[in-house]
Design a protein around this nucleic acid. Structure first.
Lengths: 183, 183
DNA sequence: TTGATAATGCACAAAGTGTTCGATATAATC
DNA sequence: GATTATATCGAACACTTTGTGCATTATCAA
């Protein structure tokens, strides 16, 4: 990929992210992104079809990076502990998010959090699908899976809104306790 | 309130709801609402400041109605069962949602589900704040509360997307089991 | 250096927004 | 039923935003 393209692309992402920290996605205009990124109008549309496409690509970029290890590491199926390595995976995930705090803060926190959740849960779903059902066998798997994913997404959102003050290990512990996966 | 006002107000709500079933909030124009509701442009702006205000008022209308009993009934503090009447409250809530299926479907299901969640969770939070901490005392109350509210909201959203096929009692049971509130 | 291509800036049509105002229709009151 | 109040209509308006087109300039890869 051309250096010029990479440069503008990252400038747009950065500007967009910065704006997302301050205001809601709906109230951000393309013009504002252009001004913030110092990029021409036609250049923007050469890269992204719409504002929605921009959000989609930003989320894909971020989550592909953050989840890369979690989704492909084989160390996940460690049956020595009862949670099958799930705690380790979640902890890693949280550390990666903390490392990429600058890149994710705008998307995750702020008024547009709901938009990010849609994408975030897609990735979490992929992660959880590898795991066996939790302790409760008397509940439809589809329902339980939805619960696990939704709860973790909510927990992470809460954690970020709280400025990531709780240590990742502690958050993972709390979460696993609440979903009954820790015994 | 003037009959004419009630008429247009409900016409706008109905039209908006219908549109929300098909497309995302962001992509719905005021003009479309006007056409669908058969209402003049100036009339719309006499009722609602913006499209966001319309959404807010619609959610307030719906949830005020659905939660009215849950939030004010004194029967909630029945300590005969371990869950302190929580199951009954949730069951009632789900029945009310089912009764108002026509009014809520557009807002709840479809592409704009995230928008509804924000308001829904506000009401759920009020409902849960009356209740004591769950079994786990080793978790920050703020975190646990967020978990309870978030999980229920996700469960209900899943239930609606699944066309409310699971009986309310069963959903309440599953949920209470998953959050460890049933023992 | 040279050919390719990305970015720029400007102009443009099209769509959407929110407001104004006189005319009309409909409700509430006597 | 006549009167008064007011909600709605509809058309016009200025304004913002959007997405596209195109000639010009700058930058990259070889």
């Amino acid at each position: 990929m051309d250096r010029r393209q990479l440069k503008t692309r990252s400038a747009i992402f950065q500007a967009f992210n910065k704006l997302l920290e301050k205001k809601h996605f709906n109230n951000i205009t393309v013009q504002e992104i252009l001004d913030e990124a110092n990029v021409g109008r036609s250049t923007f549309y050469a890269h992204f079809e719409t504002k929605d496409a921009l959000l989609r690509e930003l989320c894909t970029d971020i989550f592909d990076h953050i989840f890369s290890q979690e989704l492909h590491s084989e160390s996940s199926h460690d049956f020595s502990s009862s949670n099958h390595g799930l705690k380790e995976k979640i902890t890693h995930l949280l550390y990666h998010m903390k490392d990429n705090k600058g890149n994710v803060q705008g998307v995750l926190s702020g008024e547009s959090g709901e938009l990010f959740m849609r994408y975030f849960k897609e990735y979490l779903m992929k992660m959880f699908e590898q795991y066996p059902q939790s302790i409760r066998q008397d509940i439809p798997r589809e329902f339980a899976l939805n619960h696990l994913v939704g709860s973790l997404a909510e927990a992470v959102k809460w954690w970020i809104a709280d400025r990531m003050e709780m240590p990742p290990e502690e958050l993972a512990d709390c979460y696993l306790k609440l979903i009954g996966y820790d015994s």
